[in-house]
Design a protein around this nucleic acid. Structure first.
Lengths: 180, 180
DNA sequence: CTATCCATGTAACTAGTTACATGATTCT
DNA sequence: AGAATCATGTAACTAGTTACATGGATAG
């Protein structure tokens, strides 16, 4: 079993979760569910479906329709289920790919004149605040909804992250006010 | 001015910061400095140098050497400096590209048997703890060093993030222990 | 009569990666 | 004798993106 990207497993997991669905339907479900922490474009999703079928992890069935275009629906296979379980079981190497455009700018930004540096921090603050507000709204809305437990936890993960970074901004601004 | 990726500006900023350097030297500096929040491979860096020179944002000069291979050194130009300033000035659209393999697994993981789910959370905790310890060490080491101010702030940014996520894990584990 | 839903695809491109290749000098 | 440093490149590949293309059915 070669090197398969996480996006493949995202699609595989979706097929498992929502059986006998078309690529079209899976796309819209992906957009409404894990797109927040794992966005995936429609074209890529279709490509992954082909790959998964080629691997024998899912099986497609052509479906005739009259009041809509014909479609192809997918279901997970036994080996697909095993592959999914294996992927879920192995630890995620998270930290590796963290990339921050803001930190990159800050890195070069110290050579900017002070007002420009201040603007950089302010922009970051604005964007974190917007994130925080949006996520707070989502977390509140999903409160108590049993079906949306993980979605709420995912939003909460983002919220806690945003809050921590806002706190960091206070630290950073204080630090940078001191003469260096 | 078309659509230039942030990596180009990372290299441009580096050329500005460390003038008259070869690609080789820039590579090692990049690895020791902003690689933590903006990793870049050697081949890409060389390609970006070519692009930047084609854009007229940097100027290369061939340099003859005797006790080492000949090289080409780079310096930023006037328009390069303007382009860099412009990029630094415009706000970063952060939140867009956040991708979490852990959250993706959690999303599908609720269908796993409880011990597997517990293992998923534990793995994440371990990796966050490792990150936290590593970053704490870096932050402490850079304490007070005037030259390493931004580096320390970048590490602190990561540290605060890791701490917040560890706190989130406590919340999440409590939540998941409750019957859903 | 216009927009949206259903449904799937191709084409062209970019950013980024790893593997392969070379070769003199200098330090241990 | 062997490894590290300096120095640059090509080739082949993957993941992911946007733009372009089609067309019937139905709801407002």
């Amino acid at each position: 079993v070669a090197d398969i990207p996480d996006s493949s497993f995202a699609v595989l997991g979706l097929v498992d979760k929502v059986p006998s669905s078309s690529g079209y339907k899976l796309t819209s479900i992906a957009e409404q569910s894990f797109a927040y922490f794992w966005p995936i474009s429609r074209t890529l999703l279709y490509r992954e479906l082909k790959r998964l079928e080629r691997l024998g992890w899912i099986a497609g069935t052509p479906v005739r329709q009259e009041s809509a275009p014909d479609k192809r629906t997918y279901d997970i296979t036994g080996s697909g289920r095993r592959a999914l379980a294996h992927w879920l079981g192995k630890p995620t190497e998270t930290a590796t790919t963290f990339r921050s455009g803001f930190l990159l700018k800050l890195f070069f930004g110290l050579r900017m004149h002070p007002p420009a540096l201040a603007a950089l921090l302010t922009d970051y603050r604005r964007s974190l605040e917007a994130q925080r507000d949006q996520l707070t709204e989502i977390v509140d809305r999903l409160e108590g909804l049993a079906r949306a437990r993980v979605a709420r936890l995912a939003a909460l993960h983002g919220l806690r992250t945003a809050q921590a970074r806002l706190a960091w901004l206070d630290e950073a601004e204080a630090e940078l006010r001191e003469p260096g």
